[in-house]
C-alpha cells in the first residue's frame, strides 16, 4: 500500500509546513484547502450521483450567514452555530432536490434550477437588513476576543489547521462513503438511473441523501468562510461565479474520484495566485488579466484531460483509481 504511505507523508508535510512557510504561502494553502473541501462536498453530488449543481454557492452563503448572524445577534459561537448552518443548508437543499426530482427535472434543467435558487437567495439577502443587506455583514475583531480560538477568533495558523482538518475529514468521509452501500447506489444512479431502479435502488432517496450531505458539508465550508474572511456580501458569496469557482477543482482534478478535488485545488489555486504575481511583476496589471489566463487554462485543461488530472496521474503512478 504505497498509496497510504504517500498520503501520510503528504499530510505530515502539510502539518509541518507552517514551521518554515511565510504568511503568504499559508494564506494560499488555506485557500487550497477551502476549495478542496467544498470540492469534496460538491463532488458527492456531481461526481458520485451525477447531479450537476451550479448553485452550490447557495449553501456556502447560507452556512456563512447563519453562523455569522447567530454570532453577531445571539452571541452563539461557530462551534454551535455550525449545526444550525448545516440544518438550514440541508433544509434548503432538500427543498431544491424535492422540487426537482419529484417533478422529474434532470440534467441541464436541474443545473439551471440550482442557479435560480442561488440567485433568488442572493437577491433576497440583499434586502435582509438584520444581516447587513447589500451593504455587507462584518464580524468585528476586538482585543478581548482575539485569542478565543474556540470561537474561531485567531490568526492564520488557526485557520490553516482548521482547513487542513476539514479537508482530511472530508476526504476520509468521502473515501468511506464511496465504498459504502450508499456510494454504490449513488454511482449506479449516476451511470443509469433506470437500471439502478431495477436493482432495487430508491433513486429519489439516493439523490436526496446526496443533496443533504453535500449541502450540509458545503455549509460547514461557509461557516469557515465567514469567520476567516470576517465580511459577507450577498453579491459576493451567493454569486454564480462563486458556484463555478468551487466546482472547478473537482472537475479539473477528476470527477467522482476521492483525490480529484484535492489535486484540482492544488493546481488551480496556486495557478491563479501565480497569474496574479506574474501580471503584477510584468507591470501590466489591468484588472482581469489574471482571469483571462485562468479562463484559457480551464479551456486547455478540459480540452486535454477531460476526465481530470488525477486519473491521469494515478495511471502513471500505478494506482488504479478510475471513476468509481
Amino acid at each position: 500500500m504505497h498509496g497510504r504511505v504517500l498520503i501520510a507523508m503528504l499530510l505530515a508535510a502539510l502539518i509541518a509546513t507552517p514551521a518554515f512557510a511565510d504568511r503568504y504561502v499559508i494564506s494560499v494553502l488555506i485557500l487550497v484547502f477551502y476549495f478542496a473541501y467544498v470540492g469534496q462536498a460538491w463532488n458527492l453530488m456531481m461526481g458520485f450521483t451525477g447531479q450537476l449543481s451550479l448553485g452550490h454557492s447557495l449553501y456556502v452563503g447560507l452556512g456563512a450567514y447563519v453562523a455569522a448572524g447567530l454570532w453577531l445577534h445571539a452571541g452563539i459561537g461557530p462551534w454551535l452555530g455550525v449545526f444550525a448552518a448545516i440544518a438550514v443548508a440541508a433544509a434548503v437543499g432538500s427543498v431544491t432536490g424535492w422540487l426537482s426530482w419529484r417533478f422529474g427535472i434532470e440534467g441541464v434543467y436541474f443545473a439551471l434550477l440550482t442557479i435560480a435558487f442561488a440567485e433568488f437567495t442572493r437577491i433576497g439577502f440583499d434586502h435582509i437588513d438584520m444581516l447587513g443587506a447589500a451593504g455587507g455583514l462584518f464580524l468585528p475583531v476586538n482585543a478581548e476576543e482575539a485569542g478565543q480560538w474556540w470561537n474561531l477568533r485567531g490568526g492564520p495558523l488557526l485557520f490553516y489547521y482548521l482547513a487542513l482538518a476539514l479537508v482530511a475529514g472530508a476526504t476520509l468521509a468521502v473515501a468511506w462513503l464511496r465504498r459504502s452501500r450508499l456510494g454504490y447506489q449513488w454511482v449506479a444512479v449516476r451511470e443509469d438511473s433506470e437500471a439502478a431502479r431495477a436493482l432495487g435502488v430508491d433513486v429519489f432517496r439516493a439523490k436526496m441523501i446526496a443533496m443533504l450531505i453535500s449541502s450540509g458539508m458545503t455549509a460547514v465550508g461557509g461557516v469557515f468562510y465567514a469567520f476567516y474572511h470576517r465580511n459577507l456580501f450577498p453579491g459576493q458569496v451567493f454569486e454564480m461565479g462563486r458556484s463555478i469557482e468551487l466546482i472547478l477543482a473537482p472537475i479539473v482534478g477528476g470527477l467522482g474520484t476521492v483525490f480529484g478535488p484535492i489535486i484540482g485545488a492544488f493546481i488551480l489555486t496556486p495557478l491563479g495566485e501565480a497569474l496574479i504575481a506574474a501580471t503584477e511583476r510584468s507591470g501590466f496589471n489591468a484588472p482581469g488579466t489574471k482571469a483571462v489566463f485562468y479562463g484559457a487554462a480551464l479551456i486547455a485543461i478540459i480540452y486535454l484531460v477531460p476526465s481530470g488530472v488525477w486519473p491521469w496521474i494515478a495511471r502513471r503512478l500505478g494506482f488504479s483509481e478510475h471513476r468509481q
Binding site: V187, A195, R197, A198, L199, G200, G256, R323
Partner: peptide, 28 residues
Amino acid sequence: ERPDRIAWRGVGRTFQIVRPFPALSVED
C-alpha cells in the same frame, strides 16, 4: 408499486437493450 420496490420484493430483471453501468467495473 415502483420498480425499486418490486425489485426489493424479489423480482430481478434484465433490459432488452443491455444497460450496464459503463464506467464501473464488472464487479462493481
